[in-house]
Design a binder for these strands. Structure first.
Lengths: 211, 211
DNA sequence: GTCTATATTCCGATAGAC
DNA sequence: GTCTATCGGAATATAGAC
């Protein structure tokens, strides 16, 4: 057994200044993006001084990069795990929709953050932020093709099916203020409308793919 | 006939500095948002000096506001017109999908701009930018309900149908770099995939709603 | 580690010549 | 109308005391 003194753990203590800074930065960056975020606001929310931000994270860019990595590495594996479990297809789709709509309605800013920053700096993401092990779904695709062959699913390219499901889950929450305009809904009606999405998406998807 | 001298027309001449500034600002604001856009870059793209921006448009905020109004007032009436024409429902949906996907694949940044800025400054949009005449769709909703009553459409709330269609059209283009990750597609395959969306969305929607 | 004070950089805006 | 030069403020970053 190794007796050398344990060095500072890579994960900072739960309520350390370092952690509070990171959490504050997470909130601010996700809601306002790199350009919109101000170091002063992050410091204020963390309840510490601006100088301390630089003590722990050298620069705004570095801090941003760590937050972005954390967001990405939290979001994508969850999606993947849901898609690649070996539950039967129908159950998998149902669970995916339920889980995903829950997730996005609790964190409406996250998908927008990911998309926006992915559009602005695609290189950085693909080269430094994205985990390399992230691969193309295979179990899900195989399941869809198997069911089509059996005749229990109407023909559809698995990629399109997946994108359709994700679009129906995410978009209405991301575009929430747009719905107010296009549908002419007031905030309370809008909340009601969004709460119906889980059932609606499931119904719509299964009607489209079940023979 | 009135002989008073015609004052400066409200629309600036096609290739005036004023117009070139506006066009440059349009590009930059739509791609980078209010915070990300720099006056210097707008001036450079317009091929003029920074000072001239202020001569014509007083401030960055004012310039931004004009661009935002233009984007909104171009985008929404088109959508509305498509939805509210009195073509038969099936044809209307087909045309809407074709037109909308064409539009969004030529201008992938616009929906993201609208959504982002709508999230950041909802008040400004609802109070000053948005045209007041923009009302809730009615013809489309009535058509859907009529067809459901006739039994030529499966029961669905018209609002959800509209949101489903829009989600399926917009999201894949807005989230293009995300697809690369989730589907594991390289750029050429991705382009191929997106070119299939028109046919795919139509098939998916009609399978979901036709009895 | 945490603070105050200050340096530095960047950017929007203005003054003033032509 | 268009330019050069410059101001002034805001935001990032650093120096140095505690």
């Amino acid at each position: 057994m190794d007796n050398t003194p344990v060095p500072t753990p890579p994960t900072p203590a739960a309520d350390s200044a370092e952690q509070r800074i990171f959490d504050a930065a997470h909130e601010v960056f996700v809601q306002k993006g790199l350009d919109g975020a101000k170091m002063q606001e992050i410091a204020d929310r963390a309840g510490i001084n601006k100088a301390l931000l630089h003590y722990y994270y050298r620069s705004k860019e570095k801090l941003y990069e760590m937050v972005a990595k954390a967001v990405i590495n939290r979001a994508f594996p969850i999606i993947r795990q849901l898609i690649e479990s070996d539950d039967p297809l129908e159950q998998k789709i149902t669970r995916f929709i339920d889980f995903y709509i829950d997730l996005v309605s609790r964190n409406p800013f996250v998908p927008l953050f990911v998309i926006t920053e992915l559009n602005k700096h695609p290189d950085r993401f693909f080269e430094t932020i994205l985990p390399k092990e992230l691969l193309k779904p295979s179990i899900f695709f195989a399941q869809v093709e198997a069911e089509i062959a059996k005749g229990t699913l109407r023909p559809i390219q698995p990629q399109h099916l997946l994108v359709n499901i994700v679009s129906l889950c995410i978009f209405p929450f991301v575009a929430r203020p747009m719905l107010r305009i296009v549908l002419g809904l007031q905030p309370p009606e809008l909340a009601q409308f969004l709460s119906e999405r889980k059932a609606e998406v499931k119904k719509f998807v299964f009607q489209a793919i079940k023979p």
